[in-house]
Design a protein around this nucleic acid. Sequence first.
DNA 1: TATTGTTATACTCTATAACTATA
DNA 2: TATAGTTATAGAGTATAACAATA
Lengths: 165, 165
Amino acid sequence: MPTARDAVVPLDEQHTHTDLGWCLVTATREFKRLALEAMSDLPGGSRGYLVLKVAGRGQPQSQLSLARELGIDKTVMTYLLDELEQAGLIERRPDPNDRRARHIHVTRRGRSTLATCRETVAGVESTFLNTLGAKDAAKFRELLERLALADRVKPEDECGPAAPC
Amino acid sequence: MPTARDAVVPLDEQHTHTDLGWCLVTATREFKRLALEAMSDLPGGSRGYLVLKVAGRGQPQSQLSLARELGIDKTVMTYLLDELEQAGLIERRPDPNDRRARHIHVTRRGRSTLATCRETVAGVESTFLNTLGAKDAAKFRELLERLALADRVKPEDECGPAAPC
DNA sequence: TATTGTTATACTCTATAACTATA
DNA sequence: TATAGTTATAGAGTATAACAATA
């Protein structure tokens, strides 16, 4: 029932003021703003960066495996790769073992762009985490990563700590 | 099984793998999913909840001050309040001191709904934070809140070394 | 002239289904 | 029959500008 609770505002209530959802949305919004600003020239923005990063490591992957790994819909991945290919950062090559699939190959220019973006992202991240000290920033990264991985890693998936999904 | 690559990846590279942006987006997406699921009956979802919470405490506020506090556009706030008012959870009352503005008043039913939602949200939050222990969960909340508040309460942006203009 | 709130419009995302070519 | 990729369309969400009433 209504209660006079709101008028009194005990300490406990104060803590409720820390709304986890609001904090998540607000912090994420700000990070995206910084990232978009810093990578406005990259096709697909920060997601284009992620595609380059994931596609550029290890064996060439299909569009679908990239999409799944990044949590992007396969139809969105098509558009994203269109942009990246048009900019000359990736190429679609036929998978010799499955003619339905394409191997996503990061071009030389793509790798160069990726290297630049890594530095840009590092700058954005440190700007974003600037408020926390170095120690707390590291702690935050660790905890956030555990949360993000816990959300996505299904038991059968074998995404090690060095290769997060 | 991934991979022989993991052994090769240098420490520096390793750290780069922990993509802060991806983790933020992924964790936030999952939280929103949980919150939406739990509050599908509330008009405006988790944002409707936030409006009720903020509007229900202290002095009655105008639509604009609510919008600014929650980081919602004023035009979106109009639609949001339309829904909440239609559901009988809030009322728009004329501000006696400024006939342009409206005071947002949370109805008795709105307060009752809010109380229920508080419990629902608490459940969602603990589900979301479940992976971390109680101690790390508290730490995460603290760090995230500092980040979220730092983002919004910045007085005058200065272009730092990591984020050139 | 500036501000509160509303409305209308347009643009971006996302979700979905349908389609092709393969398997 | 199922899967990889593409395309088209609709819906949600958001951004923007214009407007009326008031300051």
